[in-house]
Amino acid sequence: MNDFDGKVALVTGTTGIAEATARRLAEGGAAIIALGIDQAANAMLQAELNRAGAAALVLATDVAVPDQVERAIASGVEKFGGLDVIVNSAAVHPYGTATTTDFETWNRAMSVNVGSIYLTARFGIPEMIKRGGGAIVNVASVQGTACQENVAAYATTKGAIHTLTRSLALDYARKGIRVNSVSPGSVR
């Protein structure tokens, strides 16, 4: 399965869906740039990708912090020569209603779940354009369209991802960049 030979893929997050995505892209031949804040998960993913013989760079990065995302993308591009794929999977999932969610938690959810997509686009799309285009996949959620109780911040961010995905798709289609979102159901 070498459907990603010669491609460089950025994946935000190093656990769960992000980890599985990084492994699959690596199995397909892509060089991987993975960004995560969980040091133990970062080390495990780096070791796993190394054992598999994958070209990989796993970086401790808070994807809600602009200069950290900019540096991480620059490091990955320097190491692997460009950027072709971005998979935005990093997320936080706070529980709470509008009246029980404190403002700090609300802002962190917005910054990680939506802001990180903006940041990877801001710093990653110029690199994709240099290579003639690419693909971006944003991991949203069914919560973005049909939410349950007690997830006000999370559901709001996932709805925003749908809108940001459409906006990015319209803005960069002429540059050869496809932008899609996927909406998984509950994941442990």
Rank of each mutant, 00 (worst) to 15 (best):
V151K: 10
T61V: 10
L49D: 09
M1F: 11
P94M: 05
T105M: 15
T165C: 09
G13F: 09
G29A: 10
D67C: 08
A64T: 01
T99S: 12
D38L: 04
D84T: 02
G53L: 04
G132T: 10
N42F: 00
V139M: 04
A55Y: 12
G115H: 01
Y118M: 09
A135W: 09
E104P: 00
F123G: 01
T163A: 14
H162Y: 15
A9F: 00
R178W: 08
V58T: 15
G132H: 11
D102E: 08
A140K: 02
D171A: 13
T165S: 12
V77H: 07
L25H: 03
L25G: 03
V8G: 05
A90G: 06
G159N: 01
T12P: 03
E149F: 14
H162K: 14
F103H: 09
L119V: 06
R51I: 11
G115R: 01
Y95S: 15
W106Y: 03
E19A: 13
L83S: 12
G76E: 05
T12R: 04
G176N: 10
T101E: 00
R51V: 14
M110L: 15
C147W: 14
V69P: 05
D84E: 07
D171W: 06
I17R: 08
E78T: 04
A34Y: 04
I129L: 08
A55N: 15
V87I: 12
G16H: 00
S111Y: 04
A121T: 12
L83K: 11
R131Y: 09
E127H: 11
T120N: 06
I125P: 05
T105G: 10
T100I: 06
R24N: 11
I86D: 00
D84R: 02
G185E: 07
K130V: 02
V137Q: 11
V11W: 05
T101I: 01
G115D: 00
S183P: 01
G36M: 03
G96D: 10
F80G: 05
T21H: 02
G13T: 10
L10N: 02
F103W: 11
N113H: 06
A155G: 02
A140S: 14
V87N: 07
Q68F: 00
A146S: 13
A72Q: 07
L25T: 04
T163I: 12
V114Q: 05
T163S: 13
V179A: 06
A41D: 02
L83C: 10
N50R: 14
T163F: 08
Q148R: 14
G6P: 01
A109H: 05
T61G: 00
F4E: 05
V151F: 08
Y172R: 03
R174F: 06
